[in-house]
Design a protein around this nucleic acid. Structure first.
Lengths: 237, 237
DNA sequence: GACTGGCGTATGGTATACCACATAACTGAG
DNA sequence: CTCAGTTATGTGGTATACCATACGCCAGTC
């Protein structure tokens, strides 16, 4: 027809279920999950009513969220947003370390000099003083740095799994990253990782990356305010 | 009523959806997915009819299977069992190597001498000759060995994710493990891993484990008969 | 004979009604 | 007042009907 009429390829994959999944996940991630006063219960009918749709797509989204580990569906009891226990958070960080360590190793073989150089730009954006001043901003840049390493591995699955973990850690970060002296040390360690990558030293890059993340692991382990009791209390109800 | 009638404590978590999920997953794993003549299409209504249930629990199972990466649901087209591409298989093995390498590292700190000794029993069950004779049996023992290492890490998430990968690799193994000379070398490498664990040498255990799995990676990379073309052809239809 | 357009059919997506069980609220006997 | 038994209500689970789109089929046209 009219050659001037070139339109959208039409997103044929759209569905309410997909949309609600994203909406609900964001909503859950924005919840103050670790606030003892937060009501962790979700109501299928209330949700479908609020969203002006039927229960079916809502339930589809909930099934997916359950598999992602965000909620728990208890038959004829209710749907509950899950808190991560201390142990689960430790394990998530451990897996993250495993994945990113491998990613760094692969990056030494697969990433271009230009790409590695871009990492330096990301890490250097904040001096230690700036980091102290803008914790939240630093936290974002920090995550971006780690995600970039995952990307440079050119292994999609490594990054995909890690991204899932990062989502779960979003709420955790607010608590754990609030320490001031960690950020400056973190920046220094990032530089170390970059130097290993630049040297194309696979073993060293893997080691530095792993130890960097495992230091966060140990830090959280030592400073985490245990909410397991609260979790149990709520789970029992 | 009749005191002779004491039955199941009633699994309160039972649901058709859960059950169908397991049934369908097993059925998919038993399919000859890589046989070009296999019909990869699933029919919601045919399934629900065959299982004598409604579409609802079937759809719930399909949603979960889609998130697991076993099937793809295309709106108003159909549900299709997915073939793993060459690249995806490479990535799965890479992630596996990353996870198990970390698991071996943790095992050097967390596993008891007795537990590590049990590994030696598992690995020694088959001499190299036996291995050649009973490929299938060896393959099972091989997987069990690797799963045991994951367990000894005492990191549930490492094992959970790895188990998911193993499921996807089940069909692949039939093709890749059919090489004879691999099994004897594999047994030798297992011994090497065990010795590193016994020596409580974290770095060495991690390295041996990673390199062992990455050798499978390289082997599959070099010998895999590429079915990507077939996959594309089917995906287009 | 090739092509266009309508129409029927198949499919996944959604809405809705109903079910079984869990739990709270209520009732009435003691 | 206490507590067993009953009823009412809320929840997720399931069944079913209907919808919109994708796609093949076929008649009709040129």
């Amino acid at each position: 027809m009219a050659s001037t009429l070139n339109l959208r390829p039409v997103d044929g994959t759209f569905s309410l279920g997909d949309h609600i999944y994203g909406v609900l996940r964001e909503a859950i991630l924005d919840m103050k999950v670790y606030d003892p006063e937060t009501d962790l219960r979700l109501d299928e009918r209330a949700l479908s009513d609020a969203l002006k749709i039927s229960r079916t797509p809502v339930r589809e989204a909930l099934v997916r969220l359950e598999q992602d580990g965000f909620v728990e569906v208890r038959a004829r009891k209710g749907v509950y947003v899950l808190r991560k226990s201390h142990g689960e958070i430790m394990e998530m960080i451990t897996v993250w370390a495993a994945l990113e360590s491998m990613a760094a190793r692969l990056a030494t073989e697969r990433a271009s000099d230009t790409e590695i150089a871009s990492l330096r730009a990301m890490a250097g954006r904040f001096g230690s003083d700036d980091a102290k001043a803008h914790i939240e901003e630093y936290s974002e840049a920090n995550i971006a740095f780690h995600q970039r390493i995952l990307e440079l591995s050119q292994c999609t699955m490594l990054k995909t799994i890690a991204d899932g973990l990062f989502l779960h850690m979003r709420a955790v970060r607010r608590k754990a990253m609030a320490e001031k002296d960690r950020s400056s040390r973190s920046v220094a360690e990032h530089i170390g990782i970059i130097e290993a990558l630049e040297a194309r030293d696979a073993d060293r890059a893997a080691k530095e990356t792993r130890e960097h993340t495992m230091r966060l692991h140990d830090h959280v382990r030592d400073t985490w305010i245990d909410l397991d009791e609260v979790t149990k209390k709520n789970a029992a109800g």
